Simulated assay, not measured.
Amino acid sequence: MAPETNTPPGLDDETLAFAARVFQYARMGHAEELAELFAQGLPANLRNDKGDSLLMLAAYNGQEDATRVILEAGGDPGLANDRGQTPLAGAAFKNELGIARLLLRHGAAVDGVGDGSRTALMTAAMFDRTEMVDLLLAHGADPDRRDASGQSAADLARAMGAQATPAQLDRAERR
């Protein structure tokens, strides 16, 4: 008799296709379909092979209704992907102000970094997203916080050639 192993069974094609469809729902903003699946027990913090949660995909792709549905189903706004990026940083990169507000209302840490070292403020500053910088500062983002290489949001913005955000951050009130 062969010894018993704890190897999980392989996933069949139907299961893999379902998983792909669920992640596509988040990317494409199919909020109603996601709400239906959450009501049937789908975990709100499901992640793909890159560590992107449903919330990260919805936020990054500008899907505000899907973002709201995922948050209301228990999606974790602080759950970072495998590169350490949070949904708030994804929204900052894409300049999705409505989604950033929604994430902040649902408890996203304004200076959250996951396992990465760049905050949403740093991301917004690097890409010259002045309204996003204002929003994040208004929610308490620390303009003096440093990344792993010791650079502030203003330093990163200057390095990327941002036109407005370096001066904006230099003028920001310090807490």
Score class of each variant (00 low, 15 high):
residue 168 Q to F: 03
residue 174 R to L: 08
residue 5 T to S: 14
residue 84 G to R: 08
residue 159 A to R: 15
residue 172 A to M: 05
residue 128 D to L: 11
residue 137 L to W: 06
residue 68 R to P: 05
residue 54 L to I: 08
residue 133 V to T: 11
residue 17 A to G: 03
residue 151 Q to F: 13
residue 43 P to N: 11
residue 96 E to Y: 11
residue 1 M to R: 09
residue 128 D to W: 09
residue 83 R to M: 13
residue 149 S to A: 14
residue 129 R to W: 01
residue 44 A to N: 00
residue 96 E to S: 14
residue 93 F to Y: 15
residue 147 D to W: 10
residue 31 A to W: 03
residue 7 T to V: 14
residue 75 G to H: 11
residue 126 M to K: 12
residue 122 M to A: 08
residue 141 A to F: 11
residue 107 G to N: 04
residue 142 D to E: 08
residue 23 F to D: 05
residue 97 L to F: 01
residue 150 G to F: 03
residue 174 R to D: 00
residue 91 A to Y: 04
residue 10 G to N: 10
residue 63 Q to K: 15
residue 2 A to G: 05
residue 61 N to R: 12
residue 160 M to Y: 13
residue 23 F to E: 05
residue 122 M to G: 07
residue 121 L to M: 07
residue 69 V to R: 13
residue 111 D to A: 10
residue 41 G to C: 04
residue 106 H to G: 03
residue 114 G to A: 11
residue 47 R to V: 15
residue 163 Q to A: 15
residue 90 G to C: 02
residue 145 R to Y: 02
residue 133 V to C: 13
residue 42 L to V: 09
residue 13 D to R: 10
residue 43 P to G: 10
residue 100 A to P: 01
residue 121 L to H: 11
residue 66 A to K: 07
residue 37 L to W: 02
residue 49 D to Y: 04
residue 45 N to K: 04
residue 125 A to K: 04
residue 138 A to H: 00
residue 62 G to D: 05
residue 32 E to K: 10
residue 149 S to K: 14
residue 169 L to P: 12
residue 93 F to D: 03
residue 136 L to W: 12
residue 127 F to G: 05
residue 135 L to Q: 07
residue 104 L to W: 06
residue 38 F to S: 05
residue 36 E to Y: 11
residue 32 E to M: 05
residue 81 N to R: 07
residue 111 D to S: 09
residue 5 T to E: 07
residue 95 N to Q: 13
residue 162 A to D: 08
residue 41 G to A: 11
residue 129 R to D: 02
residue 27 R to F: 00
residue 143 P to H: 09
residue 92 A to R: 10
residue 89 A to C: 01
residue 96 E to R: 15
residue 35 A to T: 13
residue 141 A to W: 05
residue 175 R to N: 09
residue 76 D to E: 07
residue 142 D to P: 08
residue 25 Y to E: 08
residue 157 A to K: 07
residue 69 V to G: 02
residue 6 N to D: 14
